[in-house]
Structures are given as structure tokens and as C-alpha cells.
Design a protein around this nucleic acid. Structure first.
Lengths: 214, 214
DNA sequence: CAGGACTGGAACGGATCGTTCCGCTCTGCT
DNA sequence: AGCAGAGCGGAACGATCCGTTCCAGTCCTG
């Protein structure tokens, strides 16, 4: 086997790895119940190329979802690290939110959840994400930059609301999402606001999503 | 035929009319692609009872959607009338938003759109709704109670974001929706806010929804 | 008491989709 | 040079699902 600069068939195969993942991400974000054939078509490969890499549709979905989760955890860790390093809380929070929205991690996690049996790695990282969210929200309250009734569980719901904006074009969708993220942030950055009505989601309500639909 | 207090079979049939519509609304709001049999089951009737009333699934969906649209138009007319009568703009707007969210008209319209061929009545009322929205937003700007960059087309998108909150229980969902509606309103009631990034949806982007999926 | 309105639900036919399988190509090693 | 097999495209298969039709039974109503 030659070293890094792969050639011929092997190179093509290696390239297909990422082409397939990209296509799958795009297709399943647009429609979580899309057929496998749609992914193959979008990737410009045959169905075999998919089944050579993933033993079943479910495993492909699990992989995509895990990727999204890991990305979210990474962004959350960055935000917490920045805060620990003394960065401006409001600015750090805003940057974090924009990054998460742009990366569209929630289309990959919440919307794909329930389509596969979660692995231990999913669970571990979901818990980790929860912890990071908790630290983040606590820091924001300590700095008094957000409304006092913002709770940990609100974060997920906010991202989900934004992910519900699904207009055709990729770029257009990003524009719109930033617009309404801006509106939500305008509501959040009010340390002296009167409390919102009703409680936020409970932890269990979110966890339910992960149970595979029967 | 006897007069109002129907008896026996006829009464049962009349009652079934509304039982079926209620069941259909509930089922299709929860899952717009639910099978007809699910509606029959939820309503506690057989499939025949459905097909006796609607010649096809599509017509049932069209009916539900039209009902939602009419309800929305009614609420929008009320709001405009209140403003014309000199009611407090902010309060009227808030009441309008809460009513629309509680009635969940957007699960009936936007989410069901595309599942049937729209009739002329759908089109007419959709246009009417747009006009009412326009007047409403203009009044709010004239009274300077909302952020200046709030546009007509934002309204629909906001409702859709809220409709994306879909936790199990009916009551629970209502609670959560009010919570996040409150947050959005906190962002809206800022006459001196700096403008949001990016343009709102174009009219055409919304209209696309109504085209029946091939 | 007979006709028929109304109904429940089985049965049908078409569509969809995950997965398997076969035959082909072209590579990388001997 | 030649061959074993990795990698692939896509047809075919089998299962499932679902809208609609149909029939046999019930029970008003005239």
C-alpha cells in the first residue's frame, strides 16, 4: 500500500467516504425519512457504495447524529473555555449561538433522534452537552447579561425553533435563521425583564426524543 | 325529518361529523402524513364513516386547512377591528398573537399545505390573511410599539417557529408555546432596537408552500 | 316490516423502500 | 502479463404501508 497520496481506485474510495457523508447529511437534514437511494443519487454513487460503508441505514443515521452531537459539544466547550479565559460574556454567548445555528447541529441531533437505537457514545455526549450548557447558562447569569428566567433547558428549545426555519436555499436559510436568532437574542439580553410565563422543558422531555420510535 | 333534537341513528351520524373532524385535526396536527386509519381509530369509528363524508384523504386535509385559514382570518379581523376602535395597540397585538398560537392555526395551514391541491377558496383566504397582516403591522408601526424592522412576512415565520414546539401533551405544549411566544414578544416590543440582520421571507417563499408536492 | 341509511372492518392493489445480489471494471500485487 | 478481489452500479426482491373499495350486518324510519 502506498502512503498518503492515494491513487486510483483507493483514492476514489477514500474520496467517496466524505462525498457520501456530505450527501447524507444534506439529504437527511432536508428530510429525515428520505430513502437511502436519495443519498446515493445526491452523492452520485450507487447504492452499493453506501452499503459497503454502513451495514444499514440506521447506522448511517447514528453516525450523522453523533457527528452533530460532537460538533455541538466542541462549540460548547469553546464557549465555556472563552468565558473561563475572561472573554466578554454577552459576546461569547452570541458567537456561540450563531455558530451552533450556522452549523445546524440541531437538525442533525434532535430531528434524527428517534430514527435509530442510540449507542452509549450518543448518551455520553448528550450528557456532556447538558453539562456544558449548564455551565454556560450559569456563567451568563453570574454576569447578569441575560434575563434571569433563562434556564438550561431553554437553550435546546431555542435551537429547535430556529431549526424549524427551513426555506429552500442553503444560503437563504442561513440568512433567515440569523434574523430570527437576532430577534430571540434581543429577547434574551434583558437582565431586568419580567419573567416569562410557564416553566421551560424538563430534562426528561428532551430525553424522550432519543428513544427509538417503535 | 324531525327537528333539532335528532334521535337515534341520525343523531349519531350528526355527532360523528364533529367527532371525525376533531380527531382528524388532532391526528394530522401531530403528524401530517398520518394514515386515514389513524383518524378513524382516534375518532372511534370505522373507515367507512370517514369515506362517507369525504371522498378522499386529500379533501379532508383541504377542509382542515381551510378551517384553520378561516380561523386565522377571523382572529386577524378581530385584531384589526379592535385597533380601528382605538384599543391599545400593544395589548391588542399581544392578545392576537396569543390567540393564534393557542388555536394552533399554523399547524393546520402551513404544515398541511402541500398535501392537497388548493382550491380557489384557499387562495382567496390566504390573500385576505396577507392583507389583514399588512394592515396590522402598519398599525403597529404607526403606534411605534414594535421594532421598526418588523415586516409583514415576519409574522408567518414567527408563528411557524412557535408551531415547531411539539411536546407530547396538549396542555404542556400550550405552556411552552406561550413561554417562547413571550420571549419573541420581548424582542418585538422594542421600538428603538437596532435592526435585525438580513431580510425577512419574501411573499413568494411562503406561497411556494401551497404548491402540491409531486 | 321492508327499504335503505349508516357503519365496521376485511381485502385489494399500488407504491415505497431497505437490503441483497449479480455482473462488471479496474487496481495492485506477484 | 495476469489474476484475485476490492469496489461499484443498479436491478430485483420481499416486506410493509396505506388509500380506497366493498360487503355484510345493524338499526332507524316511514
Amino acid at each position: 500500500m502506498t502512503t498518503l497520496p492515494l491513487s486510483g481506485r483507493r483514492a476514489q474510495a477514500a474520496r467517496n467516504d466524505s462525498v457520501i457523508l456530505d450527501a447524507a447529511r444534506e439529504v437527511f437534514i432536508a428530510d429525515p425519512s428520505a430513502p437511502i437511494a436519495a443519498v446515493a443519487h445526491k452523492a452520485g454513487v450507487g447504492i452499493s457504495a453506501l452499503y459497503r460503508r454502513y451495514p444499514s441505514k440506521e447506522e448511517l443515521l447514528a453516525k450523522l447524529c453523533l457527528d452533530g452531537l460532537l460538533l455541538y459539544v466542541e462549540l460548547a466547550e469553546e464557549a465555556n473555555a472563552a468565558l473561563d479565559a475572561g472573554a466578554d460574556p454577552a459576546e461569547t454567548f452570541e458567537t456561540f449561538m450563531v455558530r451552533v445555528v450556522d452549523a445546524d447541529t440541531h437538525s442533525l441531533t434532535q430531528k434524527l433522534a428517534g430514527t435509530f437505537e442510540p449507542t452509549e457514545e450518543h448518551t455520553t455526549n448528550a450528557i456532556r452537552a447538558g453539562e456544558l450548557n449548564k455551565r454556560l447558562v450559569e456563567s451568563l447569569h453570574a454576569a447578569r447579561v441575560v434575563r434571569p428566567d433563562l434556564e438550561l433547558a431553554d437553550l435546546g428549545q431555542l435551537f429547535e425553533m430556529i431549526a424549524a426555519i427551513r426555506f429552500g436555499d442553503d444560503e437563504r436559510r442561513g440568512q433567515l435563521r440569523r434574523r430570527y436568532l437576532g430577534l430571540l437574542m434581543a429577547g434574551l439580553f434583558q437582565p431586568d425583564a419580567t419573567p416569562l410565563p410557564g416553566p421551560p422543558p424538563y430534562a426528561g422531555e428532551f430525553a424522550n426524543r432519543w428513544a427509538k420510535a417503535t
